Simulated assay, not measured.
Amino acid sequence: MQDTVAVALITALSTVAAAALTGLVGALSTRRQLAHQLTVARQESAERRATRRDELRRDAYVGFLSACDQAYRQLDRRWLDAGGGEPVTGYDEAYAAMRAVDEAYNLVLLEGPAAVDSVARSVLTSLTTEYADQRRLGGEPGEATVPLRDRHRERWLTAIEVRTKRRLSFVDAVRPVLHGGE
């Protein structure tokens, strides 16, 4: 009978050991699977955040360029105005366009990165400078029938060159950011 008890005890212990070993292997396997799923979930979440950030940046950059284009159109109209001593219509539209650029610039500031902020600020500064020059030059006494562009040709050409360089600098700064840079 002792042999039967010993065999039963050995069988029970080996069954318990096998169950414990199976449970341990199962727990380790489940842990590994959960860790992998957590890693995948974190990667997917990071990718979604990066995609969303890229979308927001792209929208901010496109909005800024669109606002700049609108401001450029208003400034171009002012260069073609005859001007003179009286207030000329078009300043209100140009001012509104400049305000839209300011608002679009705020979004660029929020979305970053700093390199793009800096270049966007230089675009905004050049627009503001051109607008101020037009206001000053348009208020000078002179031939009221001659457009600002013709009266101040060198300034007009310089303004066009500056705006083109600044705009291209902005686009050059934005491209690497949108194509996997920062």
Rank of each mutant, 00 (worst) to 15 (best):
30 T>D: 11
30 T>P: 00
33 Q>P: 01
35 A>C: 04
35 A>S: 10
38 L>A: 15
39 T>I: 04
40 V>P: 02
41 A>R: 08
42 R>Y: 01
42 R>F: 01
45 S>C: 05
47 E>P: 01
47 E>Y: 00
49 R>N: 07
49 R>K: 08
50 A>T: 11
52 R>Q: 14
52 R>D: 14
53 R>D: 11
53 R>G: 11
54 D>R: 15
56 L>T: 05
57 R>T: 04
57 R>M: 03
58 R>Y: 11
58 R>E: 03
59 D>H: 06
62 V>Y: 05
62 V>F: 07
63 G>K: 03
64 F>G: 03
66 S>N: 12
66 S>H: 08
67 A>F: 05
70 Q>V: 07
71 A>S: 08
76 D>V: 07
76 D>S: 13
77 R>M: 11
77 R>I: 04
78 R>P: 05
79 W>P: 01
79 W>T: 02
80 L>V: 03
82 A>R: 13
85 G>F: 09
86 E>R: 15
88 V>F: 11
89 T>E: 14
89 T>Y: 09
92 D>N: 04
94 A>Q: 06
94 A>G: 04
95 Y>D: 15
96 A>S: 05
96 A>K: 06
96 A>L: 12
96 A>I: 12
97 A>W: 10
99 R>A: 06
100 A>P: 02
100 A>V: 04
101 V>Q: 03
102 D>V: 00
103 E>A: 11
103 E>M: 05
103 E>Q: 05
107 L>G: 04
108 V>Y: 05
108 V>P: 02
109 L>G: 07
110 L>A: 13
110 L>W: 06
111 E>L: 02
112 G>Q: 03
113 P>K: 03
116 V>R: 01
116 V>T: 05
117 D>A: 06
119 V>T: 11
120 A>R: 01
120 A>Q: 04
121 R>Y: 10
121 R>P: 01
121 R>G: 09
122 S>Y: 02
122 S>F: 10
123 V>R: 04
123 V>C: 12
124 L>C: 08
124 L>M: 03
